[in-house]
Design a protein around this nucleic acid. Structure first.
Length: 340
DNA sequence: AGAATACCTCAGCA
DNA sequence: ATGCTGAGGTATT
């Protein structure tokens, strides 16, 4: 079964999937050796590959007439990053400086609301690698099988009815979910018994931000940050800036916001969130993801700089025989792979 | 009300 | 090698 590839004309500055699909918004995409990205999503395997001018796509099974619309919707392609960027750069000099007036193709996804909710419940006090592993496990163990492609089995993300059973908590604990096992099971159970299914979460898209947020906060395992992530990345609340520890630091260090607070409490959280909403406007959540990623890249560069300059200082012209006494300076990098 | 503390696991590092 | 730390928080004192 060879998929049929088609393409959408799309400047890579409007969307860069290699960044967007691994920046901590979605957690189930995988990339193969050839740069093809894939995921099981709503009954199909979605395949993507990108070059400068086009987004190439395919799906399995092939009779998937909706795939184009699904991609369009998932990546929010009706919204032009270019126009938004101009607004943010004009309103915020620091933003402009950090992003060097370059469109990096970083944008907010419009993901399935129920999956977004579960994913971000898993994200609390956690790292991207393990979050991905956990969400993948939810699909493999509870989701419907879709297809095998290139030796990989693809599954849908499970509906809440699959996760509502009391036995789920124990199994998720065995799968390494830790205390989040209970959060997932309890949330699924409440969604089913009290609200009748995932549609309840989907309909929060129609409600105003604060209303949707309140509704989400009712679920155990959902606090302010998780609720705001779901609002932004699943419920069309484009103005929301979720305040995690990283954003909290950026706010204080680069924007001098909420300096009077020592810790990120409720008041501090809302002050930071509202500040960025005021500064960047209706798509503040999108701007935040751009700045966040720019900041991460900068940190990586800092690390690389140290790695390069530290271990092997430029050999100074040797004066006399003094160098021989300074051997420790030439310490080899400690990171030589030790296998076996 | 606001501030500590416990909570699961795992990779990275000393 | 073992032990510690922190990771895009939340619930509970």
């Amino acid at each position: 079964m060879k998929p049929i590839w088609r393409k959408i004309a799309l400047d890579s500055r409007e969307l860069r999937i290699s960044t967007v699909l691994r920046c901590g918004q979605s957690f189930r995409w995988r990339e193969n050796e050839e740069g093809v990205w894939s995921v099981g999503y709503k009954g199909r395997v979605v395949l993507l590959q990108q070059d400068d001018k086009n987004l190439h796509y395919a799906s399995l099974p092939e009779d998937d007439v909706d795939i184009k619309d699904v991609i369009d919707d998932y990546f929010n392609l009706k919204t032009s990053l270019k126009d938004l960027y101009a607004v943010w750069a004009e309103k915020d000099a620091h933003f402009k400086k950090m992003t060097l007036n370059q469109l990096a193709g970083i944008r907010i996804l419009r993901q399935d609301p129920w999956e977004t909710l579960c994913s971000f419940i898993c994200s609390s006090n956690n790292n991207i690698k393990r979050i991905s592993q956990m969400v993948e496990n939810l699909s493999i163990h509870y989701g419907d099988f879709i297809a095998n492609y290139n030796g990989v089995d693809y599954y849908d993300f499970p509906s809440p009815d699959k996760l509502a059973d009391k036995t789920v908590e124990g199994k998720l604990r065995d799968l390494g979910f830790g205390y989040r096992a209970k959060y997932i099971q309890r949330t699924a159970e409440v969604i089913m018994s009290k609200y009748g299914g995932r549609k309840y979460v989907e309909e929060l898209r129609q409600k105003p931000y604060l209303e949707a947020r309140e509704a989400l906060l009712e679920f155990t395992g959902v606090g302010p940050k998780v609720a705001d992530c779901v609002c932004l990345m699943g419920l069309d609340k484009n103005e929301v800036v979720p305040v995690d520890t990283h954003v909290w630091q950026i706010a204080q260090r680069d924007y001098k916001v909420a300096k009077k607070y020592k810790a990120l409490n409720k008041a501090a959280y809302e002050e930071v969130r509202d500040h960025f909403k005021f500064l960047w406007g209706d798509y503040a959540g999108w701007a935040h993801s751009v700045l966040f990623t720019a900041d991460l890249n900068l940190e990586e560069q800092e690390v690389k700089k140290e790695e390069i300059t530290d271990p092997l200082p430029a050999p100074k012209p040797t004066i006399g025989i003094k160098r021989e006494l300074d051997e420790p300076v030439l310490d080899l990098p400690t990171k030589i792979p030790v296998k076996g």
